[in-house]
Write a protein that binds this DNA or RNA. Structure first.
Length: 423
RNA sequence: GGAGAGGUGACCGAGUGGCUUAAGGUAACGGUUUGCUAAACCGUCGUAUGGGUAAUGCCCGUACCGGGGGUUCGAAUCCCCCCCUCUCCGCCA
């Protein structure tokens, strides 16, 4: 949510901001309604002033004067009714448009239409050249007996899968390593509810917009979250946090659910785009300070980079362009890991900062002196699996079809250093 | 699922029609004093919004006691609907 006062002051900034992000929002209409509403509310206020004045004098009035006063009150009331009707007719549209105004991107965000125009900032690691014909992760997984997509589809439909034996162990190894990595940095571990009210979905900015991407439990009015960002960020929603408790840094391991509606035919092969996966997610709730937010943004990005580096996975860092940003994001960095079977980098992490966009929607505040201020929020993936298993399996395969396990993961998989076919 | 009790400011908590610009307390902030891992006393202290003004300050308004509607000249207080929380019972990993 954007402060309407900022929109009034500089509408051009928000018109351009929305256009850059490819959001279709009628700011002019918003301001027209805002103007009308303000005029009406102003009149309403004047009427209320008169009503209050007359109302207070009534007990001390003589009968004839009282009668006149009551008559006057009647007139004022009907005037008030007309104004209230006008306001009632305008407000829903106002609220609807307000909820859609995007947060303008930061100046350092490149202009662009979609992810093809994201700008590469840096690369880490050597891309492995194979001296044999490498298999993709599904071939490897099926041959080793650790990935079973067929039965996943049989039981749960397309984009579902089983991980089995060392496949399941490797999946959990990656998650546990990532979690331990974050605990060393002082993030508070959280186990969170995954069914969220609409309120939390709106507060984080997923609604309106992502309803189609969300499994909705209509009978209970709850939504399966697509990321632990929702419960973590909304944890203190509606509260006044003590300033000393900021920044609040937390991390959660959770399952994530995504309908992937509208992605029909896209990335259908393998474990890249699936309905259910597990993710370690980091969230920071901070004071309202843009410079500090940028610092925290670097911090959460660094946390994830060091996880990738520890596992030896080559990746590149991308500055996401305006057209590929979500409604609330000020700026977003993606980490994309090299995936041999795709012959390209594929997104594995997404680090966003929002300034007060989310906090304003969920009324998440702290006291700064005698002023109440909205917090700043940020989040980033620490690791998401099984997507990260794609590079992990493919890049560490041997000619005989076995997989080398990176050293940092070995403690989580029985101290073994490779995955071999089990009988 | 059944029954009951509740939702008041950062927090606790009083308040059944005008004296509520919400008592009292806690926390916070400023000060005085005594002295020392602090206490006592005094003072300040809700939010949002409109107008005025050079002003995030000050002045004048308006709204806000879970949300929405109603009764009334006047509602935290009475009525209706909804949401949420808690307790007990039932069921249950």
């Amino acid at each position: 949510m954007i402060d309407i006062k900022l929109i009034r002051k500089d509408p051009q900034r928000f018109i351009k901001g929305a256009a850059d992000k490819n959001f279709n929002v009628d700011i002019q209409r918003l301001l027209a309604i805002d103007g009308e509403l303000r005029t009406h509310k102003n009149q309403l206020q004047k009427i209320a002033t008169q009503k209050n004045k007359i109302g207070k004098s009534i007990p001390n009035l003589a009968d004839d004067k009282k009668k006149a006063a009551l008559a006057r009150l009647g007139e004022l009331k009907s005037e008030e009714g007309g104004l209230n009707d006008a306001i009632g007719a305008l407000e829903p549209e106002f609220d609807s448009i307000m909820g859609q105004v995007p947060q303008p991107a930061a100046d350092e965000v490149p202009l662009g239409q979609d992810d093809t125009e994201n700008v590469e900032l840096s690369k880490w690691g050597e891309i492995r050249q194979f001296d044999f014909e490498p298999k993709d992760h599904i071939q490897l997984g099926v041959d080793l007996g650790i990935i079973d997509v067929e039965r996943g589809v049989k039981l749960a439909g397309t984009r579902n899968y089983f991980l089995k034996g060392d496949g399941a162990l490797l999946h959990w190894a990656v998650l546990r390593f990532a979690m331990d990595h974050m605990l060393g940095k002082g993030y508070v571990p959280m186990s969170v509810p995954l069914l969220m009210r609409d309120e939390a979905m709106r507060g984080t900015g997923y609604f309106p917009g992502a309803e189609e991407q969300t499994y909705q439990m209509e009978r209970d009015g709850l939504n399966l979250v697509g990321t632990a960002e929702v419960p973590l960020t909304a944890y203190h929603s509606g509260e006044m946090i003590a300033k000393e408790r900021l920044p609040f840094k937390c991390v959660s391991l959770s399952t994530c659910f995504r309908r992937e509606a509208g992605a029909a035919g896209k990335d259908t092969y393998g474990l890249y785009r699936i309905h259910q996966f597990d993710k370690v997610e980091q969230v920071i709730i901070a004071e309202n300070d843009e410079q500090a937010s940028k610092e925290f943004h670097k911090e959460i990005l660094g946390n994830s980079e060091s996880v990738m580096q520890a596992m030896g996975l080559p990746y590149r860092l991308v500055n996401v362009c305006t057209g590929d940003l979500g409604r609330g994001q000020v700026q977003k960095y993606d980490i994309e890991a090299w995936m041999p079977s795709r012959d390209s980098y594929g997104e594995t992490h997404s680090a966003s900062r929002f300034y007060e966009f989310q906090a304003r929607r969920m009324n998440l505040r702290y006291k700064d002196g005698n002023q109440n201020r909205f917090c700043h929020t940020l989040n980033n993936t620490v690791i998401a699996s099984p997507r990260v298993l794609i590079p992990l399996l493919e890049l560490n395969q041997n000619a005989d079809g076995t997989i080398n396990i990176p050293q940092v993961l070995q403690p989580y998989i029985g101290g073994r250093d490779r995955i071999v076919k089990s009988s």
